[in-house]
Amino acid sequence: MNARKRGVLLLLSSFVLTLSLAAMNQAFAAIDVYEFSSEQQEDEFRELIKELRCPKCQNNNISDSNAPLAQDLRDKTYEMIVEGQSKQQILDYMVARYGNFVRYDPPLTPAVLMLWIIPLSCIALGFVLVWRRSGSKAKTDELSEAERQRLAKIIEEEKSQS
C-alpha cells in the first residue's frame, strides 16, 4: 500500500472512531445517577419527577424528557430532597418559578373554573336561544281567527274568479 492510501485510510478510520466516541458520549449522557440516604427519599424523588411537567416539551414529565431544562429540574428536585424539603415545598417552589403549568394535575383555581364555565355557559345559552326561537316560530305558524276568516274570503274570491 502506498503512503497516500495509508493516509486516507488512517484519516477515514480516525473519523469513524471520532463519530463512534461522540455517539457513545450521547448515550451515556442520558443516564442519571442520584444517590439517596433513604429509600423514602428515592421514592419521593421518583414520584415528583413523574408529577412535574417539562416546560419545554409540554407533553412529557421531567422523568421522560431529555431536554436540558428537564435535566435542570431533576437536579433541582434531587437537591431539594437531599436538603430535606417536603414534597409540598418542592411543588410550591416549582409552581412559583414555572407556574401551575409545571404540574400535570394543577389545583382547581378560579382561572381554571372560568376556563370550563365560560365555554359551557356559552353553549348552554346557544341551546336556549335556539329552543326559544324554534318555540316562537311554532306559535307564528298558527293563524288567528281574523286571519282565518280573511284567508277563507281570499280562497272564495279565487274560486269565484276561476
Rank of each mutant, 00 (worst) to 15 (best):
Leu69Val: 15
Ala152Trp: 08
Ile49Lys: 01
Thr140Ile: 05
Tyr104Glu: 05
Ser13Leu: 14
Ala96Met: 01
Leu73Ser: 13
Ala27Trp: 09
Lys137Trp: 06
Ile62Arg: 09
Pro119Tyr: 02
Asp92Thr: 06
Leu113Thr: 02
Leu151Cys: 00
Ala29His: 15
Leu113Asp: 06
Leu125Gln: 12
Ile31Met: 05
Ile118His: 02
Ala67Leu: 09
Leu143Lys: 15
Met1Phe: 12
Ile118Glu: 03
Lys50Phe: 03
Phe101Gly: 05
Ser63Leu: 15
Glu39Ile: 03
Ser14Met: 12
Ile155Leu: 12
Met80Gly: 04
Pro110Ile: 00
Val112Lys: 15
Ser38Tyr: 03
Leu129Tyr: 08
Pro68Asn: 14
Met24Trp: 12
Ser65Met: 02
Ala124Val: 09
Gly135Gln: 14
Pro68Trp: 11
Ala67Met: 11
Gln41Pro: 00
Glu83Lys: 11
Tyr34Met: 06
Ser65Lys: 02
Val112Leu: 15
Arg150Gln: 12
Leu113Ser: 08
Tyr98Val: 08
Asn25Trp: 15
Leu91Met: 11
Gly99Pro: 02
Glu39Asn: 09
Gly7Asn: 13
Val128Asn: 11
Arg148Leu: 15
Met94Glu: 02
Ser20Trp: 10
Gln149Leu: 10
Met24Arg: 12
Gly99Val: 07
Ala3Asp: 11
Met114Glu: 05
Pro55Tyr: 10
Leu12Ser: 10
Ser14Leu: 12
Ala152Asp: 11
Thr18Asn: 05
Asp75Ser: 14
Val82His: 10
Arg132Tyr: 14
Met114Ser: 06
Thr140Glu: 10
Cys57Thr: 10
Gln88Val: 05
Trp116Asn: 05
Gly135Asp: 12
Ser37Val: 06
Ile123Met: 13
Ser20Lys: 01
